[in-house]
Design a protein around this nucleic acid. Structure first.
Length: 736
DNA sequence: TCAATCCGTATC
DNA sequence: ATACGGATTGAC
C-alpha cells in the first residue's frame, strides 16, 4: 500500500498506470467508471477487484478497482488513487460483468448493485483468515470432518469459535485450489439475460431423455431417476455441459438431497456451484445435504442472518475459491466461485427472492443472467412453477424435469376439496372444531393412525377477522365455518378459509347484520383446533417461532405458509389447507400463483396416499388452482397462468416498470424519458405518503430500451439536482 | 482592463 | 459535498 507523505513525489506505475474505478456514489448521472493514476508504490496491490479510496468531487470516497489500463480517455488530468484499502480482490471479474448486466436490466447503478453483491469488509477477519496456513495444515482429518458437521448447525446463530475452526478448515483446502482470474477483458455480450433476449439459444440436448444405463452411484430409490430426464441432466452436469432445467419436484421429494447431488455432479466436473434458497431453514437442510455428498470445506453456507464478521469470513471462503459450492439466501446469488458450472434456485416464486434494495433485482433473474454470461447450467426447482419458469420452457431456453404420471400417482397424497358442507351441523366434532367435517374426519383418522397433522392457516395480520357488532360472536362462514374477514369497510365479508363472500351474513346468535373487526390469529385457531382433538398436542409454527421437524406421533401442527415443519417418518398423515381466501381476496397479480405455491409446498409434506397420506383443501373444487392441486399439475397451472398473462399483457409476457414519487417528480421524469415506441403509460395510482405511481409497459423485445430510457431520464434529473426522489422499479414485485 | 464575485455544472 | 470555469459586475 502506498506510503503517505510525499504526495508530490508520487510517480505513476510503469505498466498500466491507469485504474478504472467504480466510485460508490448512488447518482445515476455518475454511473460510469472514473480513471485514476496508480502510483508506482501501489502498482502491485492495485489489482482488479480491490477496494480503493479515491478523491472524488473533493471528497474521500470508496470504490472498486475494475481494471488497469494503459491510458485514459479522460481529457483532464487524473488524480492518483488515494489508497488501496487492501489487496483482497473481493470483486471477481465474473461478478463485475454480472453486476453490469443486472444494473442495465433494472435501470440501476453499477455502484448500487456492487453494494448488494459484496459484503462490508471486516478487516480483522480478512487478516485472520489470510495468515495461519501452517496451523490449519496440522488439523487432522477427523477434526475437519467434525467441523463440517458443525458448520451445518451454524446456520442461524453463527458462533464465533466454531467459525474460527471453520476458517482453518477452509485454509486447508487452499492447497488444492489457487486463485485463477478470469480474463480481464470484456467477454460477455451485453444485452440482458435470457428473459430479455427471449432467444431459445442452446438448451443443451443433454437435458433430453436419458438414454442408456445410469452410471452414477446416486442414492438408490427415489433420486433423480424418478424423473425421465433426471439422470441425463446429472450426466450433463458431470460432463460440464450447460444444461438448463426447470424441475417440478415430486410430492415428498427430498429436494435438498437432489440439489446436493446436482452440486456434487458439477463439482466432479471441476466446476463451482451457487445455490439460492428462500430462508435459513431451507438453507440448513441444503447445507446438511451438501455435507453428505461433498468433502469437508468444499461448501459454505451464506446466511443473511449471520453477523458481519461471519458473513465476510464465509464470503472470503468463496471469493478465495476455497469453497466450491456456495449455498445461501438471496445475497448468495452474487457469491464468486471458481469456474461456475451450475446455478440453482429453489422455490423461485417465494417473494423473499426479490431484493428490497435498489435496483430491486430478483434472485431468479440474476441467476439466469449469471448462467447466460458464464455459460453454465441452471436448475430452477420447486414444487410449484412460476410463470417465469414456464416462459423459460416455452421459449425453449430450458428443459423440463418432471416425473411421469405413474410415478406421480404413487408418490402423491390423496387430495380432496371441501366447500359446501351440509353435514357440518350434524357432526359434533366438526362443530367444536369449526372445521368442515371432511377436514375434521381426515385429521382425526390420521391422528388415530398415529400420525401428525399439518394445518395451514393464513398469515397473521393480513386481514382482521370480524365479529357481530352487537353480541361479539365471531362471524363464521355459512359454508365452511372459516373466519370471515373484511377487506375494506364497505366490502362484503369474505371467508378466510374457502374464499366465499357472504353478502347476506347475519349473526346466528342474535340476527344482527352489522360486523366489527376483531382479531383471530393463528394462536386462537390453534386453541380451537386443540379443543376439537382432545388429548392431542397442538403446536404452532409461524414467524415468531418456526418448527423445523416434528416427530412421527399424533400432533396437530398449525402453521402459516412458509413455516411448515417437515414430519419425521415419511410425512404428515393429513394436511389441511385453510387459507384459500388468499386466492380470492387478494387483487395481486400473483394471488393465484402464490396460493398454488403455498398449497403445493404444504401438500408436499404429506405421506403418499398408499401410506394413508391425505390432503384436504377448503375451497371450491372448480377453481383452477384447486384443480391443479388435485391433479398435482403445476405445469398445467403455470401454462394456464402464462397464457392468461400473455392475453392481458402482464409480466413475464410483457415487461413492466413502475415509477413512484410525488406527482411532480414522476411527471418530470416521464417527460424526460425517451420511452421506446409502443410503450404504454398506465396510471397514476395513489402510493403511500402522498405519492403516486405510474406503470410502464413494453413488449419483452423492448425491455432493454425501457430500462435504458428510465435510467437516462433519472440521470438527467440528478444532473439538474432535481432531487425530489423517484423510485424506478423494473419488474416491480407488487403489481396491483 | 482586471480582480472579485456569482452561478452553474462536473466530479477522473 | 466541493471545486472549477465562465460570466458578470464594478472600480480604476
Amino acid at each position: 500500500m502506498g506510503t503517505k507523505g510525499a504526495r508530490s513525489e508520487r510517480e505513476p506505475a510503469e505498466r498500466l498506470p491507469v485504474a478504472r474505478v467504480c466510485v460508490d456514489v448512488p447518482l445515476p448521472h455518475l454511473d460510469r467508471p472514473f480513471d485514476y493514476l496508480v502510483s508506482a508504490d501501489d502498482d502491485e496491490v492495485a489489482q482488479p477487484g480491490v477496494r480503493v479510496k479515491v478523491r472524488f468531487a473533493g471528497q474521500q470516497m470508496s470504490g472498486f478497482l475494475l481494471e488497469r489500463v494503459e491510458s485514459s480517455e479522460h481529457g483532464g488530468k487524473l488524480a492518483y488513487l488515494e489508497k488501496v484499502v487492501s489487496a483482497e480482490r473481493v470483486l471477481d471479474p465474473e461478478i463485475t460483468r454480472l453486476a453490469r448486466a443486472v444494473a442495465q436490466r433494472y435501470a440501476g447503478n453499477l455502484a448500487d448493485v456492487l453494494r448488494l453483491a459484496i459484503p462490508p469488509r471486516h478487516a480483522r477477519v480478512e487478516a485472520a483468515a489470510a495468515k495461519p496456513r501452517a496451523e490449519a495444515a496440522a488439523i487432522p482429518d477427523a477434526a475437519l470432518a467434525q467441523a463440517g458437521r458443525e458448520d451445518a448447525a451454524l446456520g442461524e446463530v453463527g458462533r464465533e469459535d466454531a467459525a474460527l475452526a471453520e476458517a482453518g478448515r477452509e485454509e486447508a483446502a487452499l492447497a488444492e485450489d489457487g486463485r485463477e482470474d478470469g480474463a480481464l477483458g470484456e467477454v460477455g455480450r451485453e444485452g440482458g439475460g435470457p428473459a430479455d433476449s427471449g432467444a431459445p439459444a442452446v438448451a443443451s440436448e443433454s437435458a433430453g431423455p436419458a438414454g442408456g444405463v445410469d452410471l452414477l452411484p446416486g442414492p438408490a430409490a427415489g433420486g433423480w431417476d424418478s424423473y425421465p430426464t433426471g439422470m441425463g441432466y446429472l450426466r450433463a452436469l458431470e460432463e460440464g455441459r450447460p444444461a438448463r432445467a426447470v424441475w417440478s419436484a415430486l410430492p415428498g421429494e427430498d429436494w435438498p438431497a437432489r440439489i446436493a447431488e446436482a452440486a456434487a455432479a458439477t463439482v466432479k466436473a471441476g466446476r463451482g456451484v451457487v445455490v439460492v434458497v428462500a430462508d435459513a431453514r431451507d438453507l440448513d437442510r441444503v447445507d446438511k445435504a451438501l455435507g453428505a455428498v461433498l468433502e469437508p470445506g468444499e461448501h459454505v453456507a451464506l446466511n443473511a442472518a449471520l453477523g458481519p464478521a461471519e458473513r465476510y469470513r464465509r464470503f472470503l471462503a468463496a471469493s478465495r475459491h476455497q469453497a466450491k459450492v456456495v449455498a445461501g439466501t438471496r445475497a448468495a446469488m452474487w457469491a464468486p466461485v471458481a469456474q461456475l458450472g451450475l446455478v440453482v434456485i429453489w422455490d423461485d416464486g417465494d417473494d423473499v427472492h426479490a431484493e428490497p434494495r435498489a435496483p430491486y433485482p430478483h434472485a431468479r433473474e440474476v441467476l439466469l443472467t449469471r448462467a447466460q454470461l458464464a455459460e453454465c447450467a441452471v436448475l430452477v426447482g420447486g414444487f410449484a412453477r412460476t410463470g417465469e419458469a414456464q416462459l423459460l420452457l416455452e421459449t425453449g431456453w430450458a428443459k423440463e424435469i418432471v416425473a411421469d404420471r405413474g410415478v406421480l400417482r404413487r408418490r402423491s397424497p390423496a387430495i380432496a376439496p371441501t366447500g359446501d358442507d351440509p353435514q357440518l351441523a350434524r357432526d359434533p366434532g366438526a362443530v367444536s372444531a369449526r372445521l368442515p367435517s371432511l377436514a375434521w374426519q381426515t385429521a382425526r383418522q390420521a391422528l388415530q393412525a398415529g400420525a401428525p397433522v399439518l394445518v395451514q392457516v393464513p398469515r397473521r395480520g393480513y386481514l382482521p377477522a370480524v365479529a357481530c357488532a352487537e353480541c361479539r360472536t365471531p362471524a363464521r362462514c355459512p359454508h365452511c365455518s372459516g373466519p370471515l374477514g373484511l377487506q375494506g369497510a364497505r366490502d362484503v365479508p369474505v371467508c378466510h378459509w374457502c374464499g366465499r363472500a357472504s353478502a347476506a351474513y347475519a349473526c346466528p346468535a342474535c340476527g344482527e347484520r352489522r360486523l366489527r373487526a376483531s382479531v383471530t390469529g393463528a394462536r386462537r385457531t390453534a386453541e380451537e383446533l386443540g379443543r376439537a382433538f382432545p388429548g392431542v398436542p397442538v403446536r404452532t409454527s409461524g414467524r415468531d417461532e418456526v418448527l423445523v421437524t416434528v416427530p412421527d406421533e399424533p400432533a396437530v401442527v398449525v402453521s402459516t405458509p412458509g413455516a411448515e415443519p417437515s414430519a419425521a417418518g415419511g410425512g404428515f398423515g393429513a394436511v389441511l389447507l385453510l387459507d384459500a381466501w388468499a386466492l380470492l381476496s387478494r387483487s395481486d397479480l400473483r394471488a393465484a400463483e402464490e396460493t398454488m405455491r403455498r398449497w403445493l409446498n404444504a401438500a408436499a409434506l404429506a405421506r403418499p396416499a398408499r401410506d394413508g397420506g391425505k390432503v384436504v383443501v377448503v375451497a371450491d373444487g372448480s377453481l383452477a388452482p384447486v384443480q391443479a392441486l388435485l391433479r398435482w399439475d403445476p405445469g398445467w397451472f403455470a401454462a394456464r397462468e402464462l397464457a392468461e398473462r400473455r392475453e392481458l399483457g402482464f409480466p413475464p409476457a410483457a415487461r413492466m416498470a413502475s415509477v413512484t414519487g410525488v406527482a411532480a417528480a414522476v411527471a418530470d421524469l416521464l417527460a424526460q424519458a425517451k420511452l421506446p415506441e409502443g410503450a404504454e403509460v398506465l396510471g397514476p395510482v395513489p402510493a403511500p405518503e402522498d405519492q403516486e405511481r405510474m406503470l410502464l409497459r413494453v413488449s419483452r423485445s423492448k425491455a432493454g430500451d425501457l430500462a435504458r430510457a428510465l435510467h437516462e431520464a433519472a440521470a438527467m434529473r440528478s444532473t439538474r439536482k432535481a432531487s425530489q426522489p423517484v423510485r424506478i422499479q423494473v419488474d416491480p414485485a407488487d403489481l396491483f
